[in-house]
Design a binder for these strands. Structure first.
Lengths: 177, 177
DNA sequence: CATGGATACATCGGAACCGAGGTATTGTCT
DNA sequence: AGACAATACCTCGGTTCCGATGTATCCATG
């Protein structure tokens, strides 16, 4: 996930690690902060895999910077990960937002629509948070106000996203669909 | 997080690991699945810490079950974790839903309200996903439809939760507030 | 001129996590 | 009788993650 964010931001433009960290923090960090001790090893992993290159620049403000640039393989890997997100990338909102943030790099509208459709079918799966045996419990059946809140909030959020997904898919898909 | 879910479900009623896993999967698993190889070590950790006890039962259906029961210290630890959630417990939706799912075990309405207020103040913090320097970008300023979607969805979800939080706080707090 | 804060990068050790695999029992379908 | 799924628990090895800590530079404030 972190790796996808790194590849995605570097596909927008070359950046040094510190700036990368700020952008990742803005994207997912207010929800799930990224520690530097997670980011720098991740950068090193991607560098060792040949997905990005670093060029040391004399520090314009303070310490010397390592400007990171995506390689050709890095761009391919980004598009591969965007086109074939794992199930968790689709279900976990943090991961999904990261996919969405960089989906534009998957230039083909049909490929973009296919990814959105995966999220759509996940959101359309019937799912609850609490069950009585196999039967999903509805908000009205819970006497715990906090658990009722979970269902209420989840329903509202998924409705908002369904609306957005359907209208966006309409603009991406040719009328033939 | 996983540990909080274990403590919380066992506070509802004693359970064996396999049943525990099914409940956790229902609660957070459709978003972020829980591997058995994560659950069983976590149970062992909590057992070693004296927070739960296991009693082996002859298997009623198949293999023998280890019925897990929360100890007195386990109940205290649960209430401590609920009353003082970490920042990540408040900001990360998966974690937050887990807190909500067991908040009823914090019997005191004022203590429950204090936890809800932490979430409220987090949601009220101005935050965006994309910035131009320090200035948060609004949905209308983005030409990428997917990034615009992120902002649109996030706004709708946070609005739904704010409404729920405020109305629930009204019922929890004495009129004096 | 000293203190602190921002910039910028890095390592270390411990914890958590997860996929793959293993063991054993019971019930069901063929 | 054999195959298979479901129940029920567990370990191992590799990866990732993160808090703590360290290094160094530059700038603003007092």
């Amino acid at each position: 996930m972190l790796e996808l964010a790194i590849l995605g931001f570097l596909s927008d433009t070359p950046l040094h690690g510190y700036e990368l960290r700020k952008r990742i923090t803005a994207l997912t960090g207010h929800v799930k902060p990224v520690a530097e001790s997670t980011l720098y090893p991740a950068i090193k992993r991607l560098e060792n895999a040949g997905l990005l290159e670093r060029a040391t620049q004399p520090g314009s403000v303070a310490a010397p910077r390592h400007v990171l640039t995506l390689t050709e393989e890095g761009g391919q890997e980004l598009r591969r990960r965007l086109a074939q997100p794992s199930r968790r990338d689709v279900t976990d909102e943090n991961r999904w937002f990261t996919v969405l943030a960089f989906l534009k790099h998957l230039r083909d509208p049909e490929a973009q629509a296919a990814v959105l459709r995966r999220r759509l079918s996940f959101l359309e799966e019937p799912a609850s948070f609490f069950y009585d045996g196999d039967r999903p419990l509805r908000a009205e059946e819970l006497d715990d106000p906090f658990r009722r809140g979970i269902l209420t909030i989840a329903r509202a959020t998924s409705q908002a996203e369904l609306d957005w997904l359907r209208s966006t898919l309409d603009t991406l898909e040719p009328a033939a669909h």
